[in-house]
Amino acid sequence: MFEARLVQSAILKKVLDAVKDLLTEATFECSDSGIQVQAMDSAHVSLVSLNLRSDGFDKYRCDRNLSMGMSISCMSKILRCAGAEDTVTLRAWDNPESITFIFESPNKDKLAEYEMKLINMDQEHLGIPETSYSCVIKMPSGEFSRICRDLSQFGESITFACSKEGIKFSASGDYGSANIKLVQNTDADKEEEAVVIDMQEPLKLTFACRYLNCFVKAGPLCNQVQLSMSDDVPLVCEYKIGDIGHIKYYLAPKIDD
């Protein structure tokens, strides 16, 4: 039997909001250590890696490893049925054909169950090599969302240029061009407002706005986002999910034709 309970269903709602624009379906791997998802968008340009540790759940039981293929749009619809303060429990039997989402109101006067059919999916786990990144940036997630949104008006892609002066995001297109520079700011009043730039080597990379604007949907999960970059390798954009895990997005760069 598999059973995982989260007092705050809002966390799971936010996780779904953070992946539903990139993925139509995904395999949820459940084991003793927790729930993991690794899935690419249909164009194989970006990859979502989600990890929810078992010790982060309020109750967690997984008697045997399960691979459950789920429709992300259906799961998203179901989670929209949860009240903001509801507790959520995911439950499946061994060799399941479906998974049940159980929502319970805070004072336990309402209990709703939604059963979702599982789907058969081909596994295509990619091997992601260990990389030491030449530039790692931590910044407020709201700021990153804003930059992606604002610069998307000017072009289809954003160039990230990191130097010892800071990081510069730029975009250009038919209407003109725009750039936004950020310098390190560790004196911010609040930790979540800090900008931390750890640069070993300067770099310049270009990424498609379309995907970046999907990644920033994870902003409500965490006040800070971490961007890890090296020349000519995919960007890693990471958001922590409270004390329970993280969501990492990988994005293949655009390179000179």
Partner: peptide, 14 residues
């Protein structure tokens, strides 16, 4: 003009 790469170029297929 820049061309979009895919992750297959960087990551190992199963």
């Amino acid at each position: 003009k820049k061309k979009q790469t895919t992750l297959m170029k960087f990551f190992k297929a199963p």
